[in-house]
């Protein structure tokens, strides 16, 4: 794996405190997800208390209760796990597709290139919101459909960047030398190309991660999010649209706060990575 982490990553240099904070937050969210998935914390997120609905935050319910008297904190923590899963898997699917197609198009060129460029130009020409909505309507709701839809519709910009970077790299001296030395194509990609494009993939991964988590909220508004009854942040925020006027702010508050912390951390890190790793990051947008 050594060559993958090339000189780019060594240049990260001194880590500012904001990044330390962001990494700490992400680690915390990771831990929460782990514990939630192992049923160690927030196990009572489905337990209803019909006589204790819409309780404000108290010692027993630190973030109050919802319309069925369920512990809001537990539900929001479950939301952490849903958000991380949606964000991570969407970004993973998109990155794999984008990276694969981008490298193929850039490295081999020719008909492959023509086809892949055509494919992403086509997808890019359809307003993404419409594409997502249409796919969601076809597949129906549920966590697995959610990240599939978001992953399948968000790989285009990554693919385009990777492709042009690979084309650039391919014509560089050292690749030409490697070719002349008879290094196999797969080896060329793995040892020489991949390390030099991975930072792009990483940054795009983070962008798609954030995008997917935000998109989940919008899809929930349209009833296209996770399986109904599961406490995603989108669902919690949507419930708040009628609750706020009667002073029930805690659901909105906890979901927005957690979401803010997660996305802000990822944004900070992305921004940092861009500055350090990507000499021409404006072109990525």
């Amino acid at each position: 794996m050594a060559p993958i982490f090339s000189s780019h990553f060594k240049s990260l240099g001194r880590t500012p405190p904001s990044i330390v904070f962001a990494i700490f937050c992400l680690a915390l969210f990771g831990l929460i997800t782990l514990f939630v998935e192992l049923d160690l914390i927030a196990t009572d997120y489905r337990v209803t208390h019909y006589s204790q609905v819409y309780l404000p935050p108290s010692f027993e319910f630190p973030m109050g209760t919802d319309f069925l008297g369920r512990d809001m904190l537990s539900r929001a923590l479950h939301g952490v796990s849903i958000a991380l899963i949606v964000g991570f898997l969407s970004a993973f699917i998109a990155t794999v597709i984008g990276l694969l197609l981008g490298v193929i198009a850039g490295f081999w060129g020719g008909l492959w290139d023509e086809f892949i460029v055509w494919l992403y130009t086509t997808l890019d020409s359809i307003p993404s919101l419409l594409l997502i909505l249409a796919l969601s309507f076809v597949l129906g709701q549920g966590l697995e459909h959610l990240f599939l839809v978001l992953g399948l519709t968000s790989w285009v910009s990554l693919c385009r960047l990777i492709r042009s970077e690979v084309i650039k790299q391919r014509s560089l001296e050292y690749i030409l030398t490697a070719q002349a030395l008879g290094v196999g194509q797969i080896r060329q990609i793995y040892y020489y190309i991949l390390p030099n494009i991975l930072h792009i993939a990483l940054i795009q991964f983070a962008l798609i991660f954030v995008y997917a988590i935000k998109a989940e909220v919008i899809l929930s508004f349209l009833g296209l999010g996770v399986e109904p009854g599961e406490p995603s942040w989108g669902v919690i925020i949507n419930d708040a649209k009628s609750e706020l006027t009667q002073g029930i702010w805690w659901g909105l508050f906890i979901a927005t706060t957690l979401m803010f912390l997660l996305i802000f951390s990822v944004n900070l890190i992305t921004d940092f990575m861009r500055k350090k790793l990507d000499p021409q990051y404006h072109s990525s947008h």
Binding site: F67, L68, N238, D239
Partner: peptide, 10 residues
Amino acid sequence: NATWSRQMGE
């Protein structure tokens, strides 16, 4: 997809 309907389902 109304919130009300979903909540009753829950």
